[in-house]
Amino acid sequence: MHDFEFLEPRTVAEASRMLADLGDECRVMASGTALLLAMRQRMVTPSHVVSALRLDGLHGIEFDSQQGLRIGALVKHAELARAEVVRRHYPVLAAMAAQVANPQVRNQGTLGGNLCYADPATDPPGCLMAHGAQVVLASARGERTLPMEEFLVDYYVTALEPDELLVAIRVPPPQPGTDGRYTRFMRTAAEHRPLASVSLVARREGALCREARLVVGASVPIPGRLARAEAFLRGKTIDPMVAAEAADIVAADIDPISDNRGCADFRRDMVRVVCRRTIAELFGLKGEET
């Protein structure tokens, strides 16, 4: 690892000015679980690292029945998983956070750092997208809010401007009758990153689907909603045939990646299986989850 200067600003405006002045020679660090690894491997060699840990307003989890959930960017995955307000109002988010990577990462890594790294094979982005989440970005110029769909731009690329920091994540209040599931597929028990993931949040009445938000992650360059499958599920009574047809639509509409963890065809097949199981579990189709 090359030598670097470690900077500890106290305000977002101060951090933003540092980023603007230093440009490409600088990186922001939250907990460092991803950045330090990249620096050790010399994938990035910044001359300056700006720590976000002392910035005001980036911690804490708050819930309001009208405004929904606000998660500070520096909230750790383990904090999100065990927060009572999240477990009560957003159980799918809590369950997802409890599965991220491994215990070391869950207890050290932050939600904001995870989103800014934009690893396609990670858990939070797709699950947050299915909940209609937005990110709050701030700089010395002010704040702006983006939906997750606009924040995630490409493979390891976000919409952050060079002088911006992610300061919070906002999740709308859940509507009555809303339920959801997050399912991930791992090739082996030793893996920490899913090969395929499906997030499904639906407003339902028993087996009747009133509305659905369905997102595939890990097998694609960036998580994305499956509009055609969502439209197919809307207004239908869910049975095994409907679940299977929706999964076929999802598999046909994704553009999976190929790498040393799995070829595109394998990933497409796994997404189909995981999607069918997720729909079946959410709508209580006994014996259809496997």
Rank of each mutant, 00 (worst) to 15 (best):
Q41F: 01
V215W: 13
D24F: 00
E289R: 14
P240H: 11
G180Q: 11
D265F: 04
D179P: 02
V274R: 14
A190P: 00
A130P: 01
P125H: 12
A218F: 11
C127D: 09
C26R: 09
A118C: 10
V157R: 15
E5I: 13
L152I: 05
A83G: 01
G206H: 04
Q66R: 13
V157D: 03
R184C: 12
Y90W: 14
Q108L: 15
T11V: 07
D123F: 11
L19T: 05
L19P: 03
L19K: 08
A196P: 04
Q108G: 03
I249A: 03
S16M: 06
V157S: 03
N102H: 14
A246G: 05
V198L: 12
T183H: 12
V44M: 12
F151D: 05
F232I: 00
L93E: 12
L37A: 15
L53C: 08
V271E: 07
K286M: 03
F185L: 14
G235N: 04
A52C: 12
T11Q: 05
L37E: 12
H2R: 15
V75H: 06
G284M: 09
R87N: 09
A246I: 04
A202F: 03
T33N: 13
G224H: 13
E230K: 08
V135N: 10
R144L: 00
P9G: 02
Q66M: 07
A95Q: 14
A98K: 10
A118R: 11
A30M: 06
P46S: 01
S258V: 05
V49C: 00
R225D: 01
R141D: 15
T110Y: 12
L111I: 15
L19Y: 09
H89T: 03
L195T: 06
G262E: 07
V273T: 12
L22I: 06
I254G: 08
P162V: 02
R187S: 05
A20P: 03
R27M: 13
E84H: 11
A229F: 02
L146R: 13
P194E: 08
S258L: 07
D269N: 09
A133F: 10
L166E: 00
T33S: 09
A130D: 04
C209K: 10
P176Y: 06
L74H: 11
Q175A: 15
A229L: 06
L226R: 11
S139P: 04
V271Y: 10
E25G: 08
N260D: 06
P9L: 09
E211G: 00
N102I: 00
V50G: 02
R17K: 11
C275D: 03
A159G: 07
V28N: 02
F4P: 05
P240V: 03
E288G: 01
G23T: 09
S139V: 04
E281L: 11
E288V: 13
L111M: 15
V12W: 08
D248Q: 14
D24Q: 13
V85H: 07
D119K: 11
I257M: 15
L165I: 10
D163Y: 01
K236G: 00
Q108A: 14
F266H: 10
M43G: 00
H89S: 01
G287Q: 10
A247V: 01
L22V: 01
L160I: 10
I61Q: 12
G180Y: 13
I222L: 07
P174Q: 07
G142L: 02
I238G: 02
H48L: 01
A121C: 10
V50I: 14
D253V: 00
R187E: 08
A30P: 00
A97G: 04
